[in-house]
Structures are given as structure tokens and as C-alpha cells.
Design a protein around this nucleic acid. Structure first.
Lengths: 338, 338
DNA sequence: ATATAAACTTGTCGCGCGTAAAGATTTATT
DNA sequence: AATAAATCTTTACGCGCGACAAGTTTATAT
């Protein structure tokens, strides 16, 4: 920056001010600097910048699985917002492993991140670590809550399951429930939500008992479990509501390979519904009836909450939500699988 | 670290040495430090560490699409290897947009990354920027080559298309070719590879002319194009070879919704094959016959090349490939779609 | 024209750490 | 026990920048 400011013909502190806030220097000065930047390609060294700042411009994001399109789409949304606000989003995946989640937390601590957005694993032992980190920097949880008090943005499982259970019940057989591996609290919450929805209709909840390993290969475990179920007499009802779309993919694939026709048509044997509306769900055969999580809104609100805690309330685009526990309503996506 | 070393009862330089290379201090000293780390949770500030190092321990990774499971799987593999070698992998997605790719390059420059692994967009104008960056730091290209000379690891499209064309031709109708949007050089290379494979069998190549927008929503553009094709008399042959699996997903979905039965059975109307073996391909209905890219090996070799250029040849696990242009053979995955 | 504010300059400090040199201490070797 | 080698301590510097203070120039207002 020393060299660069000499090249520009200005003092280094002025150039430094420009990079921190372009609006803090005169228009004419700004133009000169920007021209020189374009010509020389100079950029302040990010490590030096973040070393002697009280607060860095880095946001830490932790997701539990980097190959799940739901999390990557959510992440992309947050990255975009962060960049617009002058922050750099650093994404780490815990890959379903508690030790990696812990290491990610350590890494962010050593980076002195300004704030963090985390989709946590459901590991009890990390709760205190995360809460401890949360004392020093703002943290927002998404997808699956850490506890009952920390800031959280996610989908209202009660509402979404009420919606889909209502629909399925009105349009045919009452659904049984096919769970997801117990990788986070959603696994339990959604089962509860299903049961409550059934109760409210005065129907008997029927949860399919299927052993599923606690890893993130949802399709595989659902496929294997379904194959076995179909060999042993099939599902308890002619409608299966899955905890999420990836589970539904596995169920549908197993049904297809077992010769069971999935769909809501007269000639079909089984209806299958999902939850989340993954990008590929509409391209399934048959297209998957599901409930859409609004990941754009989850990302936007998580970022808004975080920026508010960081004291960034300049732009009106970051409408601040009323409280710190946000449950978004889901929207039903009627397709032909159920 | 000042405070921490006082807490440990050692001098700061010794502690510093430990963090740089635990083997450089005595066993007893190491134990003391490690006990103290466990107790206090101290970690050196990553910005300070990387500020006055001649070379950082950061690797920059750029992928063109963060929601494509192929790239995320590749990335995960590289991240794992990097971490084992003491590097931190920083992943940025260009999201298909040249300006984001450029910004990612700028970001990595400002971070003074030790090296970079890039799956480039096929944008001509960035070639010089990337090459210029490549003069100062080692860069490895994956998936789609930047030019004909830079270090590259990817799949041998000629071999893979020969393989699948051979299979399809032997087992039924010769395939026509359904391309992918022109987002990178693979789009052109694969079409060429198909044509060459057909030529070698003395068959007439038949490339389906379908307008596809140059974005990464492959399924959608393939779905739309296929729907139109099926309305207008269908494909030129009863077998469609797609440039990649995501395209095949779109084709299969459109066929399903048009009432065209896909598969290799007697009662089927259309065979569809893909390329890449995406994680979900085996769960399609019908399961997708495709050619598997060995992304584990692509990731491993790209990392091996990079580490070699960085002078890290300690471990024998990083078997160095013979040259810097590596084309891996693909493996055919016979399933029931073709 | 003068007063005042705004924008700049020069100079200096320190963020937290790696690194090097020189001396002190411990451990291994004969 | 004496010598050599390994490991440690002390001291000092600088990585590239943000931040601040004090002084100087330039723009705006009266």
C-alpha cells in the first residue's frame, strides 16, 4: 500500500481510508484511486487488514454437509448478502462429524470472525463450546436450533407438517411417516410435528420403524430400509410422508426397483411426499410433492439478524425481524408423487 | 501467545516453534504445550501467522457452481487432503459468473494463497488473468482445462465417450448426443469425443440441436428442450447419450412427463445414458446408466501436483504423477436406463 | 476577504506472530 | 567428568495495514 499510494500520488492513510470506506474521501480523490486500482490491480492484504482491526470482516459459516443442495443453496444466498455488505463469508463443513465441527469452531475462533451462522449438528457436547463462542461474537443458528433460546432462523416444522398431512389426508390415505437419520434436532422435531398433525385430525400416527445409520447418506439408508420393508409386506398405509426429500428419493427409487408404482394416479400403488423442495425434486419420476423450505428467506433473515447484531443497520433492505427466534412458514408444492 | 507462553511456562519463540512444527521441540516440551492448549483452547491468530510468512498455508479453490454435487464432492476431497497437510482450503464459487470468478481471483491474490486449484469457466478473457496469477503461485486446473499447457487433472473425455458409445451401440440403437450448456470447454470437448467415437465405429454422429442457455441450471434447460423435442416427433434415435448426468435428469423427467418410458427393457421407448455418475444417479427412476468420473482421484492428484509444486514431498502418500497433464480413465456404470 | 470546516499530509504506534542471533541451560556421548 | 550437541531463553525486528494526533492545504460559507 506504501508503493501503491506513492503510485497514486496520495498519502497512505488517505488510501487506507478509501479502502475502509470509499465515501470517506472526496469524489475527486476516489476517482484517482479507483483509476489506479484498475491499472495496478492493488488490493490490501487481507491478513494485515484483519490483524489490527478490532473486528474482522469475516463471517464464519458452518454447515453439516457440503454436498447437500439445501445447505449449498442456503450458503450461496448468505455469501451473496455478505459480499454486498463488504464481508467475506468463509464456509466450513463439518461433514457430519462432531470433531470437524469442533475444528471449524476453533478455526473461526483463531480467525476472530466478526460473526457466525451455523447449521449445527445435534451433538450435545458442542453446545457449551458454541455457547461459549457465542459470548464473544454474535452467532445465528439456522436449519436446526442449538437450544431453545439462541437466535435461530428455520422452517416451522409444525406448520409445514400440518400442511402436508392435511393435504395428504384430504386427498387420499392418511400418511405414515418415514423418518430421517438422527443427525440433528430436525429428525426428532419433524417426527413430533407429524404426530401432532395426525393427532389434530384425530388420526393414529404411524411411524415407520426403520433403522437408519446416523450419517448423511440419506438416500442410501432410505433406499435400503424401503427395499426391506417392501419385501416384508410393504408400508402400513398407501401414503408415505418422508422427513425430507432426500429420504423420499431413496424411497421412490426402492419402490421403482421393486415394481411398486409411485404416484397419485388411479393406477398407482403408493403415494410418496417429501419435505424441503430440493432443486431436483421437481425432476423426479414422478415429480415429488413436497413442502418448500424458503431457503432464500432463511438466508436473508439469518444475515439480517447477524448484521443487526454487528451494528450494521444502514440499509433498509435488511428489514429487521421482530424477534430472534424466527420460524418461517413453508409452502406446499403439489406435484404428482402424492 | 505472549500470555499463553507465560501460562505454559515457556518462552514465546519456543511455543511459536511448536505451532509451526510440533516435532521441532522436545517430547516433554510438546506434552506440556499440548496439555496447556487443551486446557486454555489457545490457537495462534491465523491472520498474524499468515501475515509475516513468506508463504501462507492457505489454498484457494474456485469452482464454477456450488450446488453441483460433482464440484462439492471434489472440493470436499481436496479440503480433506489439504487439512491433513496443514493447509486451510478456502473455497469460492464463481457461480457461473465471470465477474465472480474474477473477484475470487482478486480475493486469493489479496490473501497471498500458497497455491490454487481451479475448475475454470470457459471465459477467454480470464485466461490471461489466471496465467498471470499462475506466474507467482502454483495453480492446478481441474475438470476443464484452461489451455493446452497448464497443469490439469480431469477425465479423459475421449476414453469415456468411446466407452459409453461402444456399450450403447453394442446393446442397441446407436446413440444420438444431447449436449450441455456451453459453460466450459467440456461442453465442446465432449461433443467432439462423441463424434469421434461414432466415427471410429463408422456410424454417423447425430447431435441433437437444442437451444440451451449458458447457465448452470442444466436440468431445467434439458427438461425444456426435451419436452419440445418430444412434442415435435421425438429424438432421432431410440437412444440418447447426454453430456452429463444432470442433463440426463432433465431428459428423463421430460420423457416421464410426456409418457415416454425410459429404460433398456423390451417395453421401453427410449434409452438415456449420462456422464459423471452423480451421487443421485443411481437413485433415478430408472437408475441411470452412466460413466463414472473418479472425483476422488481427480482431487487426490490435483492436490498431489499442487503439493509437489509447493515443495511438500514428505509423504509417500502423495505419489507424484509422471506429468502435469493428467487424464483419468472413466468407468462405465451399467444400470437400467440404457 | 476572512473564518470555518473539510480533506489531506506526515509521523508514529501496535495488531500477533515468525524468525534470526546470541547466550544460557539441559541432555547425550565418550 | 569433560566435551559436544540439542534445546531452550532473551532480545529485537518487521510483516502490511488501521488508527490516531498534529500540522498543512483546500473547499465552502459568511
Amino acid at each position: 500500500m506504501e508503493d501503491f499510494s506513492a503510485f497514486v500520488g496520495l498519502s497512505r492513510p488517505t488510501v487506507s481510508k478509501y479502502f475502509n470506506d470509499p465515501g470517506s474521501v472526496r469524489q475527486k480523490t476516489r476517482d484517482i484511486i479507483e483509476a489506479a486500482v484498475k491499472q495496478s490491480g492493488f488490493r490490501p492484504n487481507i491478513f494485515a487488514v484483519n490483524l489490527n482491526r478490532r473486528r474482522t470482516n469475516i463471517l464464519g459459516i458452518i454447515i453439516p454437509n457440503s454436498t447437500d443442495p439445501f445447505y449449498t443453496a442456503l450458503t450461496r444466498r448468505i455469501e451473496g448478502i455478505a459480499e454486498q455488505a463488504g464481508y467475506l463469508a468463509f464456509v466450513l463443513s463439518s461433514d457430519g462429524k462432531p470433531e470437524l465441527e469442533e475444528r471449524a469452531i476453533e478455526t473461526f475462533k483463531s480467525m476472530n470472525v466478526a460473526g457466525s451462522i451455523i447449521a449445527p449438528l445435534g451433538v450435545q457436547s458442542h453446545q457449551e463450546k458454541l455457547l461459549k463462542l457465542g459470548e464473544s461474537i454474535p452467532m445465528i443458528y439456522v436449519d436446526s436450533p442449538l437450544d431453545t433460546v439462541s437466535p435461530f432462523v428455520g422452517t416451522n416444522n409444525r406448520q409445514s407438517f400440518q400442511l402436508i398431512v392435511d393435504y395428504l389426508t384430504r386427498s387420499g390415505d392418511a400418511p405414515c411417516y418415514f423418518g430421517m437419520p438422527p443427525v440433528n434436532s430436525n429428525a426428532f422435531e419433524r417426527r413430533e410435528a407429524y404426530c401432532e398433525a395426525m393427532d389434530s385430525l384425530r388420526l393414529e400416527p404411524r411411524v415407520v420403524e426403520a433403522e437408519q445409520a446416523a450419517d448423511w447418506d440419506f438416500e442410501k439408508s432410505a433406499f435400503d430400509a424401503t427395499s426391506q420393508i417392501l419385501r416384508n409386506g410393504g408400508f402400513p398405509t398407501k401414503t408415505v410422508l418422508c422427513a425430507n426429500d432426500r429420504v423420499a428419493f431413496g424411497v421412490i427409487a426402492a419402490a421403482y426397483q421393486a415394481g411398486v408404482k409411485v404416484g397419485r394416479g388411479e393406477d398407482c400403488d403408493l403415494r410418496v411426499a417429501g419435505h424441503d423442495d430440493q432443486p431436483l425434486s421437481r425432476y423426479m419420476c414422478p415429480p415429488l410433492t413436497t413442502v418448500a423450505q424458503n431457503y432464500n428467506e432463511i438466508g436473508r433473515l439469518a444475515a439480517a439478524l447477524l448484521f443487526h447484531k454487528l451494528g450494521e443497520h444502514q440499509d433498509s433492505k435488511f428489514e429487521l425481524p421482530a424477534n430472534e427466534r424466527i420460524l418461517l412458514n413453508a409452502e406446499i408444492m403439489l406435484r404428482t408423487s402424492a
